[in-house]
């Protein structure tokens, strides 16, 4: 029985991974928005990492994060991989801490926003390292943060909506 649960868990990991990559890919089709650094996307695939962080193990959540980064690297080059990795690792770490702790009194929207902000901060750091100047923080920072509030709102809400359904699937396993 445990074997079955294990293999179904692995299968679900695979599905989540594929979902994360698909969302990532769809997002990459969105043209660069003016005022935001090239490559800034709503971060919908973060819904998957947040879900992983809340319902799977920490290692599993990071696995998806790394998977996304490698995918970005293979399809869009080293810069994309770096941006995805830095944003993803910071965001997933935040998600793991916030979603798995019962003591933190934040709603899903608040958590979604914090994860989105961490994601953008990670990406901004990478961009600064790549271009060799810290001035990007002041150039893109303000708009990115506001953007993160909006994005986090959406991902947090969607997570809350999706969790009950996914929870049912998990329990059936």
């Amino acid at each position: 029985m445990r074997d079955k649960k294990n293999s179904q868990r692995v299968a679900l990991l695979g599905i989540m991974g594929a979902l994360a990559l698909a969302l990532s890919f769809l997002e990459s089709l969105i043209p660069a928005l003016p005022g935001l650094p090239p490559g800034a996307k709503p971060g919908l695939s973060n819904i998957v990492t947040m879900f992983m962080a809340s319902s799977f193990s920490v290692a599993d959540a990071f696995f998806i994060t790394v998977l996304k980064a490698v995918f970005a690297g293979v399809t869009r080059g080293t810069t994309a991989m770096l941006m995805s990795a830095s944003g993803g690792i910071l965001s997933t770490a935040a998600a793991c801490v916030l979603l798995r702790s019962k003591k933190i009194n934040l709603g899903y929207i608040g958590i979604g926003i914090i994860c989105a902000v961490c994601h953008n901060i990670g990406q901004l750091m990478s961009a600064c390292l790549i271009s060799g100047t810290w001035s990007l923080i002041f150039g893109y920072g303000p708009l990115l943060l506001i953007f993160a509030v909006a994005t986090g709102f959406v991902t947090g809400t969607m997570l809350k909506l999706v969790l009950p359904a996914l929870g049912k699937i998990m329990n059936r396993l």
Partner: peptide, 11 residues
Amino acid sequence: VLADFVKGRSE
């Protein structure tokens, strides 16, 4: 990769 990248970007 990051180290290599940063090295290649110092101007």
